[in-house]
Design a protein around this nucleic acid. Structure first.
Lengths: 357, 357
DNA sequence: CTGAAAGCGCTAACAT
DNA sequence: ATGTTAGCGCTTTCAG
């Protein structure tokens, strides 16, 4: 057990024969204190190895300069990048970030939220877990007077008056499908997602709408839901295989799913892109190093993190100046070695004359 | 600005006509309070949406139940996995983890350490950044009465009386080289690392010692230091290329470096493993999905995290019961599609008769 | 079993 | 420019 008694303001004050308040002010650069005094105080403080007690400071100041961040996972490129970006941006605003991992588990998420409230963080950014949610917890957080911002993943139904920073899932998926079409594919399956969370729903919707918009049929068996992880891709591919002849192309709702598809194809000795082509939503640092290099719709992770921090800071400083609603960040297609468009023919001519699949 | 005044113990106490102390005790399950009273108090607390103020609690209890964790990076498989494991294990001990990212930057690392001390975390686990260090900061942390545990990366020189949980870098590297030898290679280069940090130094040393132990010469030009990132692998490979004929095999000090080597080889249309073979220290979730699937020495990330938490908890609870020194976690070789041993011949016979390269 | 007193280390408002 | 007075919300003795 720790018993080490730390240096306090009183210790410094005693040494110089001034009051604690003077020391407190000096150390925080308050203009009240004269330069000479200030210097003396700082010197003594550092001599004594003074470390201000943030708990005490926060308690007294009713302000923690702490930002809560809740995500479902860490060890994944997408979240890892977003987290780094949030940390960096928050630091620019002199905020420390308290990270919590829900492991896609609703109970843990609720508990983490309670903990963050308990810690009296000044604001919370959350990417909700992929489970069906009782969204009351989010309202509770806001009732406790803590600004809450949804990032990338929002609960369904989205709480009234809530604010979110999102990636253009719908539009991005359409772009992905259009890339597949440009590559000459007319039979395209979709693996991943679920209906509880916006990202899955919107990406699948984008897939479907792109198909119908271009006059293609939607084959229900070729829409394989189930989640967002590598396993979903692996098993989804196997399932597709049992269904009969493979589609010419597979669109996956996340990058890890595509990885699973690669693994399954490799296991079954099915070649990509010759036998079946792949394109996915989301990128990673190794996307370009796979063989074949995976084409994708990239998610602007850095921007997502930065915009979110910027917005939550606004919400903290000027709660009423931020109108609720969703901010959507656009995406772009990165074409590598899968789903490569044929020649230079524009999309329309590639599609021309193919009619329905 | 937040002004929302939260529910406090006094509010609950007032409602029931008891004292704050009674409420406090009841809520923490203190045996002093009768069951009936306890129940009433809990009910009112949850009715009012009471959320205990941890800042106040910590201040008063002189104990934060907070664990500091400092790492150089997040968006990398190794650290991502370790972090998740630390979070999970800490939670088992009813500890929240405060994560800080140093971005391989010494100044940031020092600042984070100061912040953690300021927050009065009960203990700190740190993976130091790869820069040359002024190790005084670590002594300062311990002087402040906060147990400090080094994980995976330790500073050089290692502070006297410090404790660490490490991966067997030296032995693991030897195993990797022996795998390469078993695959019939006698010309093996080494990319990555630097001399400031144990992991680089020990892995390179393991590489060298394995070579000499098996009667092979060490070629200085084939030891390319520089760091731990993907870029190091890319440029290292290019550098190797300029040096003349490539070695038959490349050992990389980290997994990201191997990724860089893959990228460079792909760019130069050099085939792996036909033209040049690769093996690395460290694994990732996609290691098996590369083409060819990358063989490696795996780092037991989960165990690393768990052991570290277990140890720091000991250090927090019983500071004197934990003898300083390093705990080393063993590694194992995972053979996939690179550096595959020829036939079933044992290592000795593969090496037999080859003599010096 | 319950409560009164004291204080954790700091800051904010108001003097002086 | 510096100090005084009052807490922030909770826990910890120690009395009853």
């Amino acid at each position: 057990m720790k018993k080490q008694s730390h240096i306090t303001l009183a210790d410094i004050a005693g040494r110089l024969g001034v009051s604690r308040v003077t020391v407190s002010k000096a150390l925080r650069g308050h203009p009240d204190i004269s330069d000479g005094m200030s210097k003396k105080i700082r010197r003594v403080a550092s001599e004594l190895g003074y470390s201000p007690n943030r708990m005490a400071r926060n308690l007294s100041a009713r302000r923690s300069h702490l930002l809560g961040l809740v995500v479902p996972k860490i060890a994944h490129f997408f979240f890892g990048s977003v987290i780094e970006s949030v940390y960096a941006k928050a630091l620019e605003h002199k905020y420390e970030t308290i990270l919590m991992v829900s492991h896609e588990n609703e109970e843990q998420e609720i508990q983490h939220l309670q903990t963050l409230v308990s810690m009296r963080v000044d604001g919370i950014i959350i990417s909700v877990s992929a489970r069906l949610k009782d969204t009351r917890i989010y309202d509770w957080v806001r009732q406790m007077g803590i600004p809450l911002l949804f990032m990338d993943r929002i609960p369904d139904p989205q709480p009234k008056g809530s604010t979110a920073v999102l990636v253009d899932d719908y539009g991005g998926s359409m772009k992905a499908i259009e890339q597949a079409l440009a590559a000459g594919h007319t039979t395209i399956a979709c693996i991943g997602g679920d209906t509880n969370v916006n990202i899955g729903r919107n990406r699948v919707q984008g897939y479907m709408d792109a198909l119908t918009r271009h006059g293609l049929d939607i084959k229900k068996e070729w829409i394989i839901a189930g989640g967002y992880g590598t396993d979903v891709g692996y098993h989804g591919f196997m399932q597709l295989l049992e269904l009969g002849p493979l589609p010419r192309c597979i669109f996956t709702v996340t990058y890890p799913i595509a990885l699973g598809v690669y693994a399954a194809a490799k296991a079954r000795k099915i070649r990509i892109p010759e036998d079946v082509d792949v394109i996915c939503f989301g990128d990673s640092d190794v996307g370009g190093l796979l063989t074949p290099a995976l084409s994708c719709v990239n998610q602007p992770t850095q921007r997502l993190g930065e915009e979110s921090v910027k917005l939550i800071m606004e919400m903290i400083e000027h709660p009423d100046s931020v109108p609720p609603g969703n901010r959507i960040i656009p995406t772009e297609v990165i074409v590598r070695e899968t789903c490569v468009a044929r020649g230079n023919r524009p999309l329309s001519s590639v599609l021309g004359g193919q009619g329905r699949a």
